[in-house]
């Protein structure tokens, strides 16, 4: 299959290789949570809710009482994919993604400012169309910011791949299931530090570098967007307060 039209250079959905899908974000969508956000990358739609910092519920889980305990639970809604199959909770993929999100967010949260406390991040995929991992991280960042949890920097994530000899930004489901390499990158935007890097295929070094560069560019663009969203949200809150 031609994922990039060799004559026009367009992808199946009409994007160019270095273009991202349309982004959409909304903050404060779950009233009962301390912070929450909805994040969309094209048809991939993810909701995140943050509770905390609050008292540690199960002391046994706390390794270091001088730092906050970050917990993360990732779930995919049964209706999020086309086949509407009921998936068991806690399967290997979910456990792995929960761990990835937790570690990525932990790298940014100033946990030492919140000793003896715990922060719970719940992420749920409402609609899956490729790049769910990245969307979850972006949603979690927004929700944490909404909850007012102190962070070093904004963490954003984006994926890129390599199909038809072309590096492609932000793969959708069709491109993702083509079997090519899929690189997911997470960065601390301002500090320009990579905090997450995953790939499930082999790529020659120089190709890998261009593909990763592309994903980083994507992360930066998302960071700009998230900043705008937060700024607007702050302005709105300011207005409300009078």
């Amino acid at each position: 299959m031609e994922y990039v039209n060799p004559l026009t250079g367009f992808r199946v959905d009409g994007r160019r290789p270095n273009e991202m899908r349309q982004l959409k974000a909304e903050v404060g969508v779950v009233a009962r949570a301390d912070g929450s956000a909805l994040f969309e990358m094209g048809n991939t739609r993810v909701i995140a809710a943050v509770y905390g910092p609050r008292e540690v519920q199960n002391k046994g889980q706390q390794v270091n009482s001088k730092e906050a305990l970050v917990r993360c639970e990732y779930r995919m809604a049964d209706f999020s994919t086309g086949d509407r199959r009921r998936k068991p909770k806690g399967d290997r993929r979910s456990t792995e993604i929960s761990l990835v999100i937790r570690q990525t967010m932990e790298a940014s949260i100033l946990t030492h400012l919140m000793p003896h406390s715990q922060i719970d991040i719940f992420v749920q995929v409402l609609q899956a169309d490729g790049g769910t991992r990245s969307a979850c991280i972006n949603a979690a960042t927004l929700a944490l910011a909404d909850a007012g949890i102190p962070m070093r920097d904004i963490v954003t994530s984006c994926s890129s791949g390599y199909l038809c000899s072309t590096p492609l930004l932000d793969l959708n489901y069709i491109e993702d299931s083509a079997g090519g390499p899929d690189v997911t990158v997470g960065i601390l935007a301002k500090m320009d530090k990579v905090t997450l890097l995953q790939m499930d295929a082999k790529l020659p070094m120089d190709t890998f570098e261009t593909v990763m560069e592309l994903a980083i560019e994507g992360c930066k663009a998302i960071a700009n967007y998230i900043r705008e969203v937060l700024l607007e949200n702050t302005k709105r809150l300011e207005c409300q307060r009078g």
Binding site: L163, C164, S165, A178, G180, P181, K202, P204, T207
Partner: peptide
């Protein structure tokens, strides 16, 4: 020699 890009692309 370097492996041409074609080989990094399973479907192709």
């Amino acid at each position: 020699a370097k492996l041409p890009p074609l080989f990094q692309d399973g479907p192709q």
